[in-house]
Design a protein around this nucleic acid. Structure first.
Length: 133
DNA sequence: GCCAACGTTGGC
DNA sequence: GCCAACGTTGGC
């Protein structure tokens, strides 16, 4: 089982939208590095939902429910299906993540604009600890 | 194939 | 509103 982090602007599609929908197709990703991660995702993997922009905090945990399929008429881009698992007891703000030495290598921190990134099991455990989960 | 210019994204 | 980081584009 692998861990991931998916970023979205809450104004566009946020955690509450995901809960309302009961799951969604995570599409529209147009970045080559992010696509590598999308294509590596497997059903049962877990992913943190991170709100970018105004909120800048990890807010919930999702599960990947279906491996990638083409997003568009050809194989150029990919999308996966996700469903909400649980809201984090406490959101983890970006400032907290940055202040945590054990998260200094987090892919999202090292490459700030990446919308789909990987999280190691160790980093996942730290994030859950910070979230009070 | 290189690199400068430009556009986009996200944080401050 | 600004700026840094990064990706893409286009001229050479």
């Amino acid at each position: 089982m692998a861990y991931w982090l998916l970023r979205s602007e809450p104004d566009v599609y946020g955690w509450d939208d995901l809960v309302r929908d009961g799951g969604t197709e995570w599409d529209g990703v147009r970045n080559a590095t992010a696509r590598i991660h999308l294509k590596a995702m497997q059903p049962g993997d877990q992913a943190i939902f991170y709100h970018s922009n105004k909120e800048k905090a990890a807010v919930g945990v999702m599960e990947i429910t279906r491996a990638w399929r083409p997003d568009g008429p050809d194989d150029a881009w990919a999308s996966v299906a996700v469903k909400p698992v649980a809201k984090l007891p406490k959101p983890v703000p970006l400032a907290t993540i940055k202040a945590e030495p054990r998260l200094s290598d987090l892919m999202m921190i090292r490459q700030s604009r990446l919308s789909c990134s990987a999280v190691t099991p160790e980093e996942w455990a730290v994030l859950m600890e910070l979230a009070g989960a």
